[in-house]
Amino acid sequence: MSERKSAAYRLGLITLAMLAVLTIIEFFVAVYVQSVYVQSLVLLFIIAVVKAAIIVQNFMHIARLWREESH
């Protein structure tokens, strides 16, 4: 039980770190690749999709939708 809890808290920290890094990358892409509109737009959109996927998977637990047990 305790190990499961620690793993869950660790996952939260790892997810936060990944989101923070991606947000910073996003910011620099906007600042430095802005002159190439289409490329920066596509890149920013891809980063947003990756960030959303990480939140949906790790924070929102979408997998619970088709899992048998209650928790």
Binding site: E26, A30, F45, A52, F59, M60
Partner: peptide, 24 residues
């Protein structure tokens, strides 16, 4: 409540670049 709150976060994940970063 947690799922709803994370959903609000996901929406901002798309709104932030659209409002602040994309375009001149």
């Amino acid at each position: 409540t947690a799922i709803y709150w994370h959903y609000v976060d996901v929406v901002w994940v798309f709104f932030y670049p659209a409002l602040y970063l994309m375009g001149h």
